[in-house]
Design a protein around this nucleic acid. Structure first.
Lengths: 145, 145
DNA sequence: CTCAGTGCAAAGGATTTGCATGCCG
DNA sequence: CGGCATGCAAATCCTTTGCACTGAG
C-alpha cells in the first residue's frame, strides 16, 4: 500500500468515527509506517522530537479505537504499536526475550491457511466469536546472542 | 500430570535454584493448577484470601525465574500467570477482547508440527535463536457476545 | 543463630486524565 | 463561535521495593 493510500485509509477510518486526521496523528502514522515494526511510545517519541508523550498515548488510543493501529503486548513492560493488518498485511512477530525488540515475518500461505482452519474449529468448540489470531516466535535476536 | 508430580517438579526446579518450596509458593501452584487457565494477580488473591498482594507478585516472579510459571501479556492492563508448559503441556490461548478472560486450547498434532517447522525456517532466516512460540486466538467469549 | 520468606506500607514507573490554550471547520 | 486537539503537570494504578519480623534448619 502506498503512502497516499495509507493516509487515505486512515483518514477514512477516522472520519467514520467522527475524528479528525490531525497533525499529530499524521506524524504517528508516518513514524509507524517508516519503522515497519512495532514501536514503543518511547521509540516513537525518539523518532520525532515534536511529539509529546501524553499526546502520543492519547492519539495512539484513538487510532487503535478506529482500527488504524494495533497494540501489542509483549512480556517486557512496554506496550508496542504498529499499523493495523488491513493497512499493512497479515504477518507475525519474532520477539527477542532479552531486549524486547520485534521483527516481522510471514508464514507460507498454505501453512497459514491450514492453521486458520484449525483455529476456526477450536474457536467453534469454545463457542467463541473469532476476530483474529496472533502468532509470535520467542527467542533471542542476533545482537543479544 | 498428577498433583503430586507437579509438586515434585516445582520443588525440584526451586531446589535447583537454591530456593525453598514455601507455603505461599505451594498455594500459588495449587491455585494455578485448579484454575486450568492463566490468572491475574487479583484473580489469584480472590481464589485464596490468605495470600497477600506483594507476596503473590514476589513469588510469581520467583516461580517464573525457576521456570515453573509463565507470565502472559495480554492487551488488557494485567499480566496473567499459568503453570509452565513442561508442567502442563503445550497449548494455546483463546483471549476475549472484551473481558480479557482466557481459555486454553490445543491444535491437532499434525498442524502443530508443520507450524513448528515453518517457524523454525522463519527464525533461521532472521538468524534468530528460537525458544518457543505462542499462538493466541482473539475474539469474544460466550458471556460477552 | 542465620537467612530466606512474609506482610505491611511506601515507592516506582508506564499510562491516563484535568485543565487552559490553540486552532480547524 | 463551538468543540476537538494539544501540551503541561498532576493523578492513577499495576507492580516492585524497603524494612522489620517470623520461622525453618
Amino acid at each position: 500500500m502506498t503512502n497516499a493510500e495509507i493516509n487515505e485509509k486512515v483518514a477514512s477510518l477516522l472520519r467514520k468515527a467522527g475524528q479528525r486526521y490531525s497533525p499529530v496523528r499524521r506524524r504517528l502514522v508516518t513514524v509507524l509506517r517508516l519503522a515497519g515494526k512495532p514501536l514503543t511510545n518511547n521509540q516513537i517519541i525518539a523518532s520525532d522530537d515534536s511529539l509529546v508523550q501524553s499526546s502520543v498515548y492519547r492519539n495512539l488510543n484513538v487510532l487503535e479505537e478506529v482500527g488504524a493501529v494495533t497494540r501489542i503486548a509483549t512480556n517486557d513492560e512496554f506496550a508496542r504499536f504498529e499499523l493495523a493488518e488491513h493497512i499493512t498485511e497479515h504477518h507475525h512477530h519474532i520477539i527477542c526475550n532479552t531486549c524486547g525488540d520485534i521483527a516481522d515475518f510471514s508464514l507460507p500461505p498454505n501453512i497459514e491457511k491450514s492453521l486458520d482452519l484449525s483455529l476456526r474449529k477450536a474457536a467453534k468448540k469454545a463457542s467463541f466469536d473469532i476476530d483474529n489470531h496472533r502468532l509470535d516466535v520467542l527467542g533471542t535476536c542476533t545482537s543479544c546472542q
